[in-house]
Design a protein around this nucleic acid. Structure first.
Lengths: 204, 204
DNA sequence: TCGCAATGTTACCACTGTCAACAATGTAGT
DNA sequence: ACTACATTGTTGACAGTGGTAACATTGCGA
């Protein structure tokens, strides 16, 4: 266990440091210029050092995207209401948590769904993304069992739910859907529309 | 009017050529490496020539994104059904056209909604994007007047509709929502769910 | 016809991703 | 303890990129 004080030749735990530095850059770099050399620079290490831990830049980005999916899943799990009285009360907090995660970590969220880096992210993305998808899927399945949502292919309904929230999140990140307050009117209305589409119609 | 045959010193209409070449690259470059030098190369011109027509790379990308929005708007306008018998019949073809546009022009569609290039695209995007948004808005307004959709803030419902289709399109581009056939089951189901959320509930 | 503005080219700069060669360090086997 | 080796970090190079400045060529108006 080397002492951190005297900057030894070997960093000690450079891999983790690189990942954390990468997350930092994703967090405060609004201009999305993610350079491997900048990561190395911030980590106080030479520009080629990261290559001892990651085969190339895309690999690091994949790693970061993975962490992003993990965090998103945790955020959703943490937002799940305990005793929802209606489908709306169940879906709303999770949706808000999802959108909030996206607007709080715009660069990271974009990275998660970007196929721009040589298709790598997209390739490895399936499993983790589907883990998030499964949260929605479970929610709707239970709702269907409880008789609160329509009897339609669950997969299609989950797709609708995910796509809607995903779309809202990206529109919010892009500043098109005013993300002033997360609890803004269009957002609530959009989610309400989704819930109406899922729920079994009630007598007016 | 210079003859195109003998490659004069002055290209003649380089600006348009650059834009078209850019669109070509967007079309067949799946790997999303959009280099200004490659554009110049394909246009058969020196690597600095584009700077006489565009201040920088971002400006060209903004231009391309604009064209993308124009084309999307035209595609949607062309897909509008003539005499829809229901809200579903009205929304479905437009939605399919939207998703098809995205999956047919993945790189272009991504560019349209990417704020990665120095926020330029996002800044200039508003007007054109809202033009697309207005198509949805008009559709829902007319539906509300006709009494086929719920009386809720139109803006929120239009947001829901757009976000859902936008999300579906991106998920399809990312290959998460199997885009095998555009008329796939999850896609139809998702749109159906949307329509149910918009429409006034019918007696079962 | 002459001079200037527009447009294209060349040469250069800083920067990036990536690789090869080299240096320092930890560690296993004797 | 000593030595050979694998690990990890550094330096220096390469090609490719966005961008700028200086220069060349052309078209066009006075």
């Amino acid at each position: 266990m080397t002492d951190v004080q005297n900057r030894p030749y070997h960093h000690g735990d450079l891999r983790r440091t690189i990942i954390e530095t990468g997350l930092d850059i994703l967090r405060d770099e609004k201009n999305w210029q993610f350079t491997l050399r900048e990561v190395a620079r911030r980590a106080g290490v030479s520009h080629a050092a990261p290559y001892k831990h990651f085969p190339d830049k895309a690999a690091l980005l994949v790693e970061l995207a993975m962490i992003g999916f993990d965090r998103l899943r945790e955020a959703l799990a943490g937002a799940k209401p305990e005793a929802p009285q209606s489908l709306f009360e169940e879906i709303m907090p999770i949706s808000l948590a999802y959108v909030a995660f996206g607007t709080d970590n715009p660069a990271l969220y974009r990275l998660m769904f970007s196929a721009e880096e040589g298709r790598s992210v997209g390739m490895h993305l399936d499993q983790r993304a589907l883990a998030v998808f499964d949260i929605v899927l479970d929610m709707l399945s239970r709702g269907q069992d409880a008789g609160t949502i329509r009897k339609r292919p669950v997969r299609g309904q989950a797709t609708a739910a995910w796509a809607l929230i995903h779309g809202i999140t990206l529109l919010a990140i892009d500043g098109i859907l005013v993300p002033e307050k997360v609890g803004s009117a269009p957002l609530d209305a959009a989610i309400a529309t989704l819930v109406e589409g899922l729920a079994i119609p009630q007598p007016i």
